[in-house]
Design a protein around this nucleic acid. Structure first.
Lengths: 118, 118
DNA sequence: CGCTTCGTACGATAGCCATCGTAGTACGTC
DNA sequence: GACGTACTACGATGGCTATCGTACGAAGCG
């Protein structure tokens, strides 16, 4: 018992797979900033630190958006040194809602191209 | 000029296909009430009147939800006598975001079963 | 121990939104 | 015209949320 981990501000709570709600996922992705984060996470297979995203908002607001994504069950976060790593919960989302994440990402890509970003 | 249609409160404005935004669609579907409406619309192939939905809210609130769905481009509404008919814009959504609507409906079904509704 | 980097916590603010109730409009029928 | 049905419009309200700034904490590096 000597290694009981003291609760810390660095403990990150994630919903269990079975607690992920479709409505919460959709709400999380209905914000342009958060949809952008998820799109960037989806292209690389590796995790990214929060600061690797060039979001047009302050750091406070970024923190907020990452937390919304985490609490909805879309991403998983953990600390590595001073950095905070972010990764898509792809496997769990695919198990819960087969095909949904791919369809969402494809839809976002398609719209980005259509609106002249691509 | 005798047949110039006077603008009326019964004119319903719908976004054109190219003005439908993924974020707006996701936001529209992130409300449990509206997701339920869309699920019920999806099972039947016919249009339904507003009053055919047994929603646990007042009629005012229903009107609000149907309008959000229409303005997001998810449903198409038109009057038939005193009734207002509602239909999914399935073809247009499939053209814009192939596979998305099906994946969303499948995800909603799956979650309903998982949560013990089915 | 300082210093830097990275992210958090907290409070404030402004805007959006789900809900309701009441009053009203449009249509069909008698 | 009178009545009923179906839905709307408007205003209110309470809650949520995206944004910011400032101050702080945790880890690494010299």
């Amino acid at each position: 018992m000597s290694t009981a981990p003291a609760p810390s501000s660095r403990d990150l709570r994630h919903p269990a797979s079975e607690d992920i709600r479709l409505e919460a996922v959709l709400h999380a992705l209905s914000d342009p900033m958060r949809l952008q984060i998820v799109r960037e996470l989806a292209v690389g297979r590796d995790e990214l630190t929060c600061s690797q995203f060039a979001l047009p908002v302050t750091k406070s607001t970024s923190t907020h958006h990452f937390r919304v994504l985490r609490e909805a069950g879309v991403i998983r976060q953990c600390y590595r040194g001073t950095a905070k790593m972010n990764g898509l919960r792809r496997q769990e989302l695919d198990d819960l809602f087969p095909g949904l994440l791919d369809a969402l990402l494809a839809a976002a890509d398609r719209q980005a191209v259509r609106l002249g970003e691509g």
